[in-house]
């Protein structure tokens, strides 16, 4: 994907040009409203970029600078490694990091009513306030929690999400080297990534 350098935002009688830094500064509510109205388009070097890919590339690291172009080979996944996931309920939550230094992440989960709860406890890990990203176990737990929570699943996420799928998600979406930088993702961002995950086959719940 080409680095995003121009973003077009629709207004009542026309469109405006903004830049990735402006997008990052916008509140989640504003961004969600634009996405819901299909009122935003992303461009890199003059070419339009898929909205979901663009959001995914702009959201996790929240860098004001355009993201470097990163090409990864498409993995060929054996049929027996693909798991089926049926969405139960598509949530509109936001996940943000409260402890902003070190590998111990405390994630707050906020819903549309702005009610915020510790994500770890919400997901049924009563003894842990934080996800320890120094350990593989902590990282995978957080990833699996995110991947399942956005589809409204409760219970043990690790049973639903296989290791390979979590690993792919980690490689393409997550960053544990943020230092003190801001980190926040929406459920929509996460779902966009899950949809691209070759280890997961999403089924219609209708």
């Amino acid at each position: 994907m080409k680095p995003i350098d121009q973003i077009m935002v629709r207004k009542l009688g026309g469109w405006n040009l903004i830049y990735p830094a402006d997008w990052v500064k916008m509140s989640l509510t504003e961004r969600d409203a634009l996405l819901a109205d299909d009122a935003v388009q992303f461009f890199g070097d003059g070419a339009q970029i898929d909205t979901m890919e663009a959001i995914a590339s702009l959201s996790p690291d929240m860098g004001a600078e355009p993201q470097p172009e990163e090409k990864k080979p498409e993995p060929t996944v054996p049929e027996n490694q693909i798991v089926e996931l049926t969405p139960a309920d598509l949530v509109t939550a936001t996940y943000s990091r409260q402890v902003i230094s070190g590998p111990a992440w405390q994630i707050q989960r906020s819903n549309v009513d702005d009610i915020s709860v510790p994500f770890s406890k919400f997901r049924g890990h009563p003894s842990d306030d934080v996800y320890d990203l120094l350990t593989k176990e902590g990282t995978l737990t957080l990833i699996a929690d995110l991947m399942t929570d956005v589809f409204g699943h409760t219970g043990d996420s690790r049973e639903l999400i296989p290791l390979e799928a979590a690993q792919f998600f980690d490689d393409n979406f997550f960053s544990t080297s943020l230092g003190d930088r801001f980190w926040e993702v929406t459920a929509k961002d996460v779902r966009a990534q899950v949809a691209k995950n070759p280890y997961i086959k999403l089924l219609n719940n209708a």
């Binding site: 898929d50 979901m52 949530v91 509109t92 549309v112 966009a192 949809a195 999403l202």
Partner: peptide, 18 residues
């Protein structure tokens, strides 16, 4: 853009709720 829209359709994106 069809790649994502078909995936979104699969997810039943219009039924989004919290």
């Amino acid at each position: 853009k069809l790649d994502w829209s078909s995936a979104a359709e699969l997810l039943g994106a219009n039924n989004e709720a919290d």
